[in-house]
Write a protein that binds this DNA or RNA. Structure first.
Lengths: 243, 243
DNA sequence: TCAAGTATACTTGTATACAAGTATTATAAA
DNA sequence: TTTATAATACTTGTATACAAGTATACTTGA
């Protein structure tokens, strides 16, 4: 099989990445996009052939994806879990949980530097919108929230984020690509929400932060079905990998 | 080097474990106990010799320990982070965060089955105390909290727990071993706290839960220094692994 | 036709080899 | 003695080989 095919994950984000990381990122995208359906059983050997690498990087990828909860390692083969609407809600539960926690810490800190940093990132997001660069926009969006979390310097909150981030990133990437094509008008609202978020940090207004977080969630929340439909459209020329 | 030595991690918990898992568990214990000091640089090759296995299981172990935030993978060698008092507080921050979240869900559920299960575990803990079995007690203590978290069926909260659990387990194990030797009287208080916790779940009393959680924390919180001192005592006959 | 056992084709986990890159040390030139 | 260059001893990431175990398919006997 192993034909040349497009990759879902932005190749320029992988400039210095190892084969293991490449496989991890790409496999994650294919799972979250629904291209590899939930319930599919992945074989190390088959994946090694498909990606034209040895089993070592594949094993590494499967271990990571299992720790991210999008596949389940069983005695024979890895079973794809993927993201259903339930999981997406759960991810946002956790994000709200940690971002609320972080906010409580921020309230007791000097946030001037952070606010400046976030404003810069928001400017970048606006530029990305102007040039219809969905990938760059997603990158900055994730970075925005990561920057907030980094600010409080809490290694175990950061650990949670690091576990959640790749799945978030993939989901946002797919979601934004779709919306750049179909719902361009959404982005003025997204920008406004991020402005609110910055404002909340500046004024240390907890309620405002929760409000903007929830609006952002309602906004970003694309139903998984839509995502999958859209994905199908984007990749219609692509060879399906049935063995 | 590689002399025969005692292992810190209970060998009976590893009955069917792979070499990778054994190394992971044992290395974690040595790091958390302070036997391998923070700042130490671990080499894959050296570890492979010390544990008398190949690099494959060692690599696996280092990846896992890095995701648990007790080592940091750098370009050359893995740097030990370990647990300082700060990290232990952070872990309890996260535990309080997720257990509070879980409690909110429990309040809207039928908790009869859970309460029964927890009572059973508590009985087991009492037996472990009676026979001065620190390892068994630790196992049941961790299981107690894990059971609560499992009850709400939230895959991403569970993901966080799964990331935190091994470090928690190791820390509790070391802490309890010390207290069984030195502070036996503590255990009546620990049991009482767990009874309060069950009561809080039964009556769905949020404040009681927070109260018992905090008391449990204050109780379990052993200063890292004490842990290390105690560890030195327990392993005085053991050969240090200087290369 | 069906049950029990056997062969085969998978699986995982581990060991080992090697290429490419990076520190460290040794050596030679100033 | 100091500095530049070369040799070496390490590092990581990947490929490959193999042992042990497990599911699937294929007999063979009733």
């Amino acid at each position: 099989m192993a034909e040349s095919r497009e990759f879902l994950y932005p190749s320029k984000w992988l400039s210095k990445a190892s084969a293991g990381n490449r496989v991890t990122s790409e496999l994650r995208m294919r799972i979250i996009s629904g291209e590899i359906e939930s319930g599919t059983i992945l074989s190390e050997n088959k994946l090694a052939v498909d990606f034209a690498v040895s089993r070592s990087p594949i094993r590494e990828a499967l271990k990571i994806l299992a720790s991210e909860n999008i596949i389940r390692l069983e005695r024979m083969g890895a079973v794809v879990i993927g993201l259903s609407d339930k999981e997406i809600e759960e991810i946002y539960d956790v994000r709200l949980l940690i971002e609320s926690f972080v906010f409580e810490r921020l309230v007791r800190m000097d946030t001037n530097e952070l606010v400046k940093e976030l404003s810069k990132i928001l400017e970048m997001m606006k530029v990305a919108i102007k040039y219809s660069d969905a990938d760059e926009f997603s990158y900055q969006d994730v970075l925005f929230h990561e920057t907030i979390i980094h600010a409080v310097n809490h290694s175990y909150i950061l650990m949670i984020w690091n576990n959640l981030k790749p799945v978030m990133e993939s989901f946002i990437l797919l979601s934004m690509r779709m919306r750049f094509k179909e719902k361009y008008e959404d982005f003025t609202r997204i920008v406004k929400n991020h402005e609110l978020y910055i404002e909340a940090i500046k004024t240390k207004d907890r309620d405002l932060m929760i409000k903007s977080f929830h609006e952002n969630f309602d906004d970003v929340q694309v139903k998984v079905e839509d995502l999958w439909m859209s994905q199908q459209m984007l990749s219609k020329g692509v060879v399906q990998q049935n063995d």
